[in-house]
């Protein structure tokens, strides 16, 4: 089981300035999952409840040299994201601002201080002008084969793409809205229609508070809004669409929803919302464009899955 790679300048900045900053808001402990072609950060995938997050990178997005070998086709271990962030910050500071720095990242086993047992570390090494800095980030033991299989299955499930996705580009507005909305209630109804409507609603005995975003870009299954529906209220419109089978509605925790929007800190270019398998979970996908274009950058994918609340439990 071996892993060693050299992060590029862009790779280090992408991780430190954008991705980790956002991931850290979702959770502290993550799995790093390394394969021949990809390096991924996975959160909460082995857990049924709570928000699940995946950030996946093609090796070229982060590394210029990448050596990987394992009998299991993959290596996975858990890591404290704040420690990883500190290590990256430190190596960026050491390397300075020149281009073409080499940031080595590798898996090692070392004797920790006051210990007789060799422990696993994710080690970062960088050459400064006059010094070299090595950061050892403690990690868990690599996952055993059965655990790894479980993680792989969970990842495959998480990769299921909803049949209908709506695109939202003004994430700031949504984020500030949900931030304020979470004072009002705990359970959020999210409805997505094939007409390109996204409808959020909190309903308690004292108040119903909702927001509707219309005429969004739809990916996947589309439908035209029936004539005359445009004039009714947001609630009626969505109820009719659900009855017609043109929309799906789920209830999720406002806190989870807000957490998923924190991925906005990674500065994605747009976000997609979709409901998987007729309401088993809500998926939020964040897309990055290739710099300077409007083309999707397939080397990076970032998405969250929000568990659906049992309607009876709210």
């Amino acid at each position: 089981m071996k892993f060693k790679g050299f992060l590029t300048d862009n790779g280090v900045y992408l991780l430190e300035k954008r991705i980790l900053h956002a991931l850290e808001k979702t959770g502290k402990i993550w799995h790093i999952y390394i394969t021949e072609t990809h390096l991924s950060f996975l959160h909460n995938l082995l857990n049924g409840d709570g928000i699940q997050s995946v950030a996946q990178f093609r090796k070229q997005a982060l590394f210029d040299e990448y050596r990987f070998s394992s009998q299991n086709d993959a290596i996975a271990f858990s890591i404290d994201l704040s420690l990883l962030q500190r290590a990256l910050r430190s190596i960026i500071a050491t390397a300075g601002t020149d281009d073409g720095n080499k940031y080595e990242m590798k898996l090692v086993k070392k004797l920790a201080p006051h210990s007789h047992q060799a422990l696993p570390f994710l080690t970062f090494e960088t050459q400064g002008y006059k010094s070299a800095v090595i950061q050892d980030v403690p990690i868990s033991k690599p996952l055993s084969r059965p655990d790894l299989l479980e993680l792989q299955t969970a990842l495959q499930t998480a990769q299921v793409i909803p049949t209908c996705l709506v695109q939202l580009s003004d994430m700031n507005q949504l984020q500030s809205f949900v931030d304020r909305m979470k004072h009002v209630g705990d359970a959020l109804n999210v409805s997505i229609s094939k007409y390109g409507d996204l409808h959020l609603q909190i309903s308690t005995t004292l108040i119903t508070l909702g927001a509707e975003f219309r005429k969004l870009l739809v990916l996947g299954e589309k439908a035209d809004m029936p004539v005359g529906d445009g004039d009714s209220t947001a609630q009626t419109r969505m109820q009719r669409a659900v009855l017609r089978g043109d929309a799906t509605s789920v209830q999720v925790s406002v806190k989870h929803f807000f957490k998923s929007l924190q991925c906005h800190l990674a500065k994605p270019d747009c976000a997609y919302f979709g409901i998987v398998n007729q309401g088993s979970c809500l998926t939020v996908i964040f897309d990055f464009f290739i710099p300077g274009t409007r083309l999707r950058d397939n080397a990076i994918s970032l998405y969250c899955r929000l568990p659906v609340l049992d309607p009876g439990s709210s």
Binding site: Q173, L209, G210, E212, K215
Partner: peptide, 11 residues
């Protein structure tokens, strides 16, 4: 805005 709308009913 015609494309986004926030609404509330307060009891």
């Amino acid at each position: 805005s015609s494309n986004s709308c926030i609404y509330a009913d307060i009891r």
